[in-house]
């Protein structure tokens, strides 16, 4: 485990140079969110922004490694390639969770100070989970793509993934229409109200797991 810790520390040192950007990003996010007319949205929106921000910043470590060709050096360490990939996933997932917690707590404090009322926590958490799902989608598509094609081309894959999902969604919609399958709004609302958090938490966990397995497979075969 120590070697993985070493790799995560390396990534955190690399992100040190992002310190100012992160602070500026949070200030801008806070100003844009807290100046909204509906104060009940502030916590979740701020948390969504910090979650996405932290997740995106953590992906920047790939670019640092690519510039310094660190992969070539790191594979000479006494560790397996699986551990190298695992360290990266721990960092990215950790940054995403940390971003959501920091955003949520700060948002809650500021919101309480301004509104003096406690918001509907479940609703707020559902919105934050939506943010986590969004950044998790980006990360889980991008990480294996970067391992396969490098940082630049890896980003392109994300656009294709979004396009593919849009096409698939449209196809499913028309198939449903043709087969006369309809889901009532009440059913959707019921599922969202009762199971949204757990369903999305599970989907996100499965997405990370599949993405991790694909990345390990790609990286094991990669010539560094």
């Amino acid at each position: 485990m120590n070697v993985i810790k070493g790799l995560i520390i390396k990534d955190l040192f690399e992100l040190k140079s992002y310190k100012k950007f992160i602070i500026i990003f949070m200030i801008i996010s806070a100003i844009s969110v807290f100046s909204r007319s509906n104060p009940s949205e502030t916590i979740s929106l701020f948390a969504v922004m910090t979650t996405i921000g932290f997740g995106m910043f953590s992906l920047a470590t790939f670019s640092y490694d690519e510039i310094s060709k660190s992969d070539k050096y790191i594979t000479t360490f006494p560790l397996t390639r699986k551990q190298i990939v695992l360290a990266r996933y721990i960092l990215v997932i950790g940054a995403t969770i940390l971003g959501s917690i920091i955003g949520f707590v700060l948002g809650l404090i500021v919101s309480l100070a301004i509104n003096h009322t406690f918001p509907n926590m479940y609703e707020e958490l559902c919105i934050v989970m939506g943010g986590i799902f969004g950044i998790a989608f980006i990360e889980t598509v991008q990480i294996p793509s970067i391992y396969k094609f490098g940082s630049e081309k890896g980003r392109m894959v994300l656009f294709f993934a979004i396009l593919a999902i849009a096409i698939l969604g449209t196809i499913l919609f028309y198939i449903g229409k043709m087969l006369n399958i309809s889901i009532s709004l009440e059913t959707i609302n019921y599922v969202i109200e009762h199971y949204f958090l757990i369903i999305f938490a599970l989907i996100v966990a499965v997405m990370y797991y599949i993405s991790y397995r694909i990345s390990v497979k790609i990286y094991n075969k990669k010539e560094v």
Binding site: V3, K5, G6, L7, I9, K10, E14, S70, Y73, L79
Partner: peptide, 22 residues
């Protein structure tokens, strides 16, 4: 290696903190 090492944004102190775990 001639063309590869840890990121150039690390100081010798940082390198120690990373490699002592390796």
């Amino acid at each position: 290696l001639d063309d590869s090492f840890l990121s150039e944004y690390l100081t010798p102190n940082d390198v120690n903190k990373v490699i002592k775990n390796v």
